[in-house]
Nucleic acid binder design. Sequence first.
DNA 1: ACTTAACCAACTAAAATAGTCAATTATCCT
DNA 2: AGGATAATTGACTATTTTAGTTGGTTAAGT
Lengths: 156, 156
Amino acid sequence: MRLTTKGRYAVTAMLDLVLHSQTTPVTLTEIATRQTISLSYLEQLFSRLRKADLVKGVRGPGGGYRLRQTPDLISIASIIEAVNEPIDSTKCGGEENCQHDSVCLTHDLWSGLSEHIQAYLSKITLADLIAQRDERRNNAKCGEAIIHFDKPLKYG
Amino acid sequence: MRLTTKGRYAVTAMLDLVLHSQTTPVTLTEIATRQTISLSYLEQLFSRLRKADLVKGVRGPGGGYRLRQTPDLISIASIIEAVNEPIDSTKCGGEENCQHDSVCLTHDLWSGLSEHIQAYLSKITLADLIAQRDERRNNAKCGEAIIHFDKPLKYG
DNA sequence: ACTTAACCAACTAAAATAGTCAATTATCCT
DNA sequence: AGGATAATTGACTATTTTAGTTGGTTAAGT
């Protein structure tokens, strides 16, 4: 699992979508202006998010995007995976030829790390992020007490 | 902490360096040919690794690079951090202005995730990776039993 | 019909990654 | 001392990824 700005854009956009979901769908134009992401880039991202069945597009006036599932069922991992297509993180591909000493060694390292991050981000959902925000809003002004994810949040 | 191919190259090169460290330093040319990484790219990487005090260059014939510390003191995290310069993973910088709802929300998410990965990779050292390889060499042929880092390895 | 907004494809721009080239400097060896 | 080795440095090019642009088509609402 790669961690780049692309995934961040996607998560930010999805969060914006959730936070502004009312009876009507949310348009990309709204998200674009609120989050200062270009509309066309959002289109690219949402094209992938849609193909991954995370969102559902509604055409025509009054249209926009909706979540396919409730926020507690959409993990951060699934969002990030949806937008950046998978790569083989190793040179030896699936072959795992150990002629060059350290190739498979790093292969294990990266695949293990990837699994670890995957597991971590799979446990955090959009609902968790919203709950965290609400909690902070009640307890403190922004900038005073910043809550960090030292451990995966509990949810359910 | 960003996870890109750049960090992978660096870790691979450092591993190669450790595995071939004898009485004499290891030249970048050797590493380049063994790991099929271009010499000049290695130069760029090792320039940063040297500035981060992870390696020490020895000029002249018979020269090359050595580790500054023993392999059990060099974490994977330190290698990755050395090669890719830090970026602010958030738009709001340090300002944390919460006027736009989800900005600080994702800020917390990314900084938390970064810390998490940081902690994970800080516990894995070059020595761990070598130990893992030796273990595998004794127990199984490559390709049969691949050990994954489901949990950080113990060391010390 | 007309407007809205998703959907789509090709194209451009900027940034990061990867690699090239050429020169300099320190060190060893003869 | 002089030549070979290999780090060190910097500027430059190529490729890939990321981000943004343009100009459409399609579906749905008014």
